Amino acid sequence: MFDFKSDPNLDPTERYRQLCEAADALTHDESDAVANMANVAALLWEFVPDLNWAGFYRVGTNAKGAPELVLGPFVGRPACIRIPIGVGVCGVAAKDATTQRVEDVHAFPGHIACDAASQSELVVPVIRDGAVVAVVDLDSPKTSRFSEEDAEGIEALAQLLSARI
């Protein structure tokens, strides 16, 4: 049995080092992408304070075969199931293959409000062989919740997971 807990008073560098270490321990020998995303979503919830949603959107296709983001494993309230590439914070992160750190989601053009309590958001693309395969999505009920250190920590996690999801 695993019992991963994080001290909420850790500095962000140490928090994300421990998060990546825990994610590596849980995913290194597991080939099932959904199982790995589920465990990492739970780790995010345990390690990152002040969240109201943590999880993944996977790159999939719509009924016409066009790429879109499809809800993956997460912790939090029910969420939007499908997001067009280029729409909302997650869709922009997937389209541009860049991290999106949004201090106030209500000021983000085209923001998709799956949970009205969300005030800020951090979305990091997971890139494998030069293509976005998923995004890690973190929402917080606090504005300006996510720092550059948070972004760097989740980017390190996304890199670790790129071959495992």
Rank of each mutant, 00 (worst) to 15 (best):
M1H: 06
P12R: 10
A41H: 09
N39L: 02
K64Y: 07
N39D: 10
R145L: 06
I154N: 03
G88D: 14
Y57L: 09
A25T: 01
E152A: 11
E149L: 10
A131Q: 06
K5R: 11
C114D: 08
E152G: 00
K64L: 10
R145F: 10
R15G: 06
F56G: 13
P67K: 07
E68C: 14
D115K: 02
E14T: 08
D129H: 03
S118G: 14
S31T: 14
K95A: 13
R77F: 01
Q100N: 04
A41Q: 07
S162F: 00
P109K: 05
I85V: 08
V133Q: 01
A107L: 12
Q119L: 14
R58V: 12
H106T: 14
E103W: 06
P141C: 14
N62A: 03
R15L: 13
R128V: 00
L26C: 01
G153L: 01
L69F: 07
E121F: 12
V89E: 10
K64V: 05
N36C: 05
V105E: 09
P8Y: 05
D29H: 11
E103K: 12
T143H: 10
P49T: 14
Q100L: 05
V40M: 00
E149R: 06
G60Y: 09
G110Q: 14
M37E: 15
R77H: 03
V123W: 06
V92H: 12
D150V: 02
R145Y: 04
V40E: 03
L19Y: 03
C80W: 03
I154H: 04
V48P: 02
A42C: 01
S31N: 14
N62V: 02
N36L: 05
E148L: 14
A107Y: 02
R82Y: 01
E152V: 02
A97E: 15
A97W: 15
L69Q: 06
A163T: 11
P84A: 11
S140Q: 13
P12A: 11
T99S: 11
F74C: 07
I83L: 10
T13C: 04
F146L: 09
I85H: 05
H106G: 08
R128F: 01
D139H: 10
G91A: 10
A134I: 07
A151H: 09
A131E: 10
A33L: 00
F74D: 08
T143E: 12
L26A: 04
P78I: 03
A94I: 13
F4C: 08
E149M: 08
D96F: 03
D7G: 02
Q119P: 07
M37S: 14
F74A: 05
V132Y: 12
C114F: 09
Y57W: 12
L71S: 08
A116V: 04
H106S: 13
S144A: 15
V126A: 08
L44H: 01
G65Q: 09
H111S: 05
V102I: 15
D11K: 02
R58G: 02
M1I: 06
Q119N: 13
H106W: 11
C114N: 11
F108P: 03
D24Y: 00
L71D: 09
A25G: 00
W45Q: 02
H111K: 04
L26V: 03
I81P: 00
L43F: 03
A94H: 10
D50W: 08
S140E: 11
V89W: 13
D24V: 00
D24I: 00
G76C: 03
V48W: 01
G72C: 12
G76H: 01
Q119M: 15
A93P: 10
